[in-house]
Structure formats: C-alpha cells, structure tokens
Design a protein around this nucleic acid. Sequence first.
DNA 1: TCAAAAAGCGACAACAATGTCTCTTATTTC
DNA 2: GAAATAAGAGACATTGTTGTCGCTTTTTGA
Lengths: 184, 184
Amino acid sequence: MGRKGEKTREAIREQAYRLFAEKGFKSVTMSDICERTGLSRGGLYRYYAGTEQIFSEILSEEYEIADRIERKEPAGAILDDMLSAIYAEIMEKERSLSLAIYEYANMGNEPFFAEINERAKKRWISLLEYGAGTGEFREVDTGAVSELILYYYQGLRMWSRVISFDEKTAENYEKMIRQILRRE
Amino acid sequence: MGRKGEKTREAIREQAYRLFAEKGFKSVTMSDICERTGLSRGGLYRYYAGTEQIFSEILSEEYEIADRIERKEPAGAILDDMLSAIYAEIMEKERSLSLAIYEYANMGNEPFFAEINERAKKRWISLLEYGAGTGEFREVDTGAVSELILYYYQGLRMWSRVISFDEKTAENYEKMIRQILRRE
DNA sequence: TCAAAAAGCGACAACAATGTCTCTTATTTC
DNA sequence: GAAATAAGAGACATTGTTGTCGCTTTTTGA
C-alpha cells in the first residue's frame, strides 16, 4: 500500500537540497521545486506545505548525521577524522547549505542553531580535555580554543561559497589547529 | 537649486540601512522602504531604481570607512586598534549588515567580495610582517595566521546575529590572536 | 481483474511586489 | 510673489507566488 509516495518524497528532498545549496533558503520557491521535480503544484503540495517544511526536514537529516560521532579512540585519531571532515566540507561548495542555513537561522530559528552550536562546542571541549588528559595535546583554555576552531571553520565554510579557495586555505586551517594543540 | 532632495536621499539610506540590518538583503522590499521613510512609491523611485542600488550605495560608504587605516605606529598599537574595532563589531549586532552582505555576495557579486577580502588579508599580512620585523610579534606563517584572524572573525560576526554572545566570546578572540602572535 | 486508495494535474482566486505614468503640491529662484 | 522646476502622491498594469480544490490517472492489493 502507498509505496510510490515515498520515492517521490525523497526525490523532492533531493531536488530541493540542490536548489537550497544553489540559491539559499529565501530564493527558493515552491514553483522552482515543481519545475525541478517535474511535479505539478497539486502534486507537490500533497507532500509538503511549503519550503520551510521541506528545509527543516532536510536539516534534521543533516544534523542527525553530524551528531553521531562518539568513540573511544586516541584523541589524535579523532582529531584527524574531524579535521578531514571539515577539510572536505570547506572544499565541496556545490552541496554547501551554508547560505540557506544562515538565512533560515536568521528567520526566527535562532534558538535551534544556538543549541546545535552549543553541542558542537561541548564536543570540542571534551575532546580537548580528553587529549590533554592522555598527554596527546597541549593544555589550553578549552573554551577559547574550541570557539576558535568552530568560528574559524564557520567563517571559512561560509566564504568558500563566495571566494574560490585553493586547497592551501583549507590546509592552513588544519595546520593552525594542530599547531595550537601541539605539545612542545 | 534642489537642496531638499539630498536630505531625502540620506533619509532613505538611513532607513534602508536599518531594514537591511534587521532582515538581510533579500527580504527588504521597496514597499518596506516606502513605509519606513513615509515616502510613496513614486517618491522613492525618483531616487533609487531598486533595493540593489540602495544597498550598493550603502556598501560603498561602508567599505570606504573600513579601508582607510594607514599609519606608521608600532605594530602593537595598530593591532590594539584593529582588535578593538573587531570587538566592537562583534558586540554591536543591531547595526550588523552581515546577513545582508552575505546574501548580496551570493547573488552574483562574488568578485567584489573576493577583492575586499584579498585586500583585508594583505593588510594583515603586512602588519604581521612589520611586527615581526620590529621584533614585537613572533615569526609566523603570515598567510595562514592572517586567514585565521579573518575567518575566525567572520564566523564570529555572522553567528553573533544568531547566538547571543557574552563579552567572553569576543574577549576570547582577542586573547587567542594575541597568544598566537606573542613572542615567547 | 477490478474497485478503492493514492498520486498527480492544472485552473483559479488571493495576494504581494514591481516599475511606470500622470497629476498635484512644494520649493526655489529671479 | 509668480514662473519654473523639483519633489512627492497614488492609481495602474504586470508579474510572480501562494495555497486550494475538483477532477483524472495510476497504483495497489484482495
């Protein structure tokens, strides 16, 4: 019963994702999504009541993935993973939602993103503490350093849409973070 | 001849600035600006052909101010000035155009902002070189460090609209930068 | 295979924003 | 203070977007 609908739902999200990545949140209309999916208005509205609904569904998928990093490896190895994930994200561009997310955040969804951000910061703090405990990292002001890691990354990610970075810029990020954490 | 017009022009820019700071670029309509200024459509269109025109005029004022930092003081003093300007910008919020600028940048104005950014980076690089020359700062990879300074700042500035920072966060910025530059 | 349910269509009314044009009202300037 | 010019009003046609609704087509499962 009703199996085809799920395929369409996914196709809608897939196409909408691309549109949001291209144009941000505000500039995407339901008509745009109709066009891309080949659906009519009636067809599309059967699934989603508007762009906000589609976007928030995309977002929850997105952050679900980002949130499930939880292991018990050496701090250095975890750091490697996180930095290479970040490197990839800075370099990808085409699928970057940074504009859409930022627009959406500024439309009354501040608390949600404050929360996301708080969690990310806590994750970094606990990694830094853990690494300092095992002696892999230098002792640092974990609050300040995790903010640096996060906002430096945000700045890069956002402006990589506007300025065409070479790999050097993304490498510099990694290099600076490692340098800050390196034991002398 | 025609003096009153200039007053109105300025009033339009002033009100438009507020709107852009509140809602970003895309969400501001000519009708919004009519409402705030108390002008009719005909009246407003006599001065500006659209929101892009108003915004780009506001931008050029904005960057004109930002661009004229050129002195021959000790590197440490220049650094102090720049950091305190940054501190103020992170904390102000109400008049922050960061959303508007980012939206506008992503609407085909990438080259303009790439250029602005390039200049800012060069300014930092030359300050870092100068300071290392006088022995006030540590010798660092000036390219990498200036990127860190810039994008960390961008990240902070953008997300300060969404997350209510306390002064601590802005202070941490200053602290980290000084620490990176401090001679041992 | 065929009836019921799900999926999809496209016209339509309502609204919001744009840019223009003509007319009226203020402001200069002499 | 009167003619010339600038500033401003507001109605209008146009365009784009939204959300809905009744109808048709397709899918599904008994």
